[in-house]
Amino acid sequence: MAGLLWPCLPGADAPSRHGTAGRSRGVRAAVLATTLMVLCQASRADPIEEKVQLCNACHGENGIPQDVQTPVIWGQHQGYLYLQLRDYKRGTRKSDPMSTIAETLERDEMMALAEYFAGKPWPRLGQPSASDAVAAQAQRANVAVNCTGCHLGAYQGDGTQPRLAGQRREYLVKSMIEFRTRTRGNNPGMSDLMLSISEEAIAACAEYLAGLQ
């Protein structure tokens, strides 16, 4: 598939090879440009595989994202993935690459992409398990606001409720803090909950969740 795509891109080097945290900005900009180009070229009838290649450039050919602030979307739930794409397009959730990407997508394409990625296996990032002390702090936060009442047993999620187990730690921290500051404005309920717990509790939750599978 890549053969189909990359020849029409400027600087056809697959971005996945450059995806270190330090260089991620430039990579993202480049990938974004290519993404937009291809998305714009792609007609509605095109199979989503072409778009998938572009998503993979950042979210990982094997489901493991290059940048630590880019979330795992392989194996994430379809309803949740769809809602995020919808919200990036609506503008209630904002992100440099994703807002622009989502702008070009129609509902059925979002659904198809969401279905495709939901059908992939969740990758193993191999993040370390949290220490007992950190796990206990995360559990206290869970007792206080009942995270698992929504994110469900073992933080596996379902439907529009995201899986958190095994998500990248840095991304988890970022998303929770952005809920807290309402920078991420697409779920006021999560914002309220994050405002009711401390930043230390958030850090503990992220570390604990990252270490689950």
């Binding site: 006021p188 309920g189 405002l195 009711s196």
Partner: peptide, 23 residues
């Protein structure tokens, strides 16, 4: 019982705050 204010989020979770168990 904690209160926070935000506009209608079009079908997303809208608690207007949080209730927290006192551990």
């Amino acid at each position: 019982y904690h209160v926070e204010s935000s506009p209608y989020p079009q079908g997303k979770l809208w608690l207007g705050g949080a209730f927290k168990v006192i551990p």
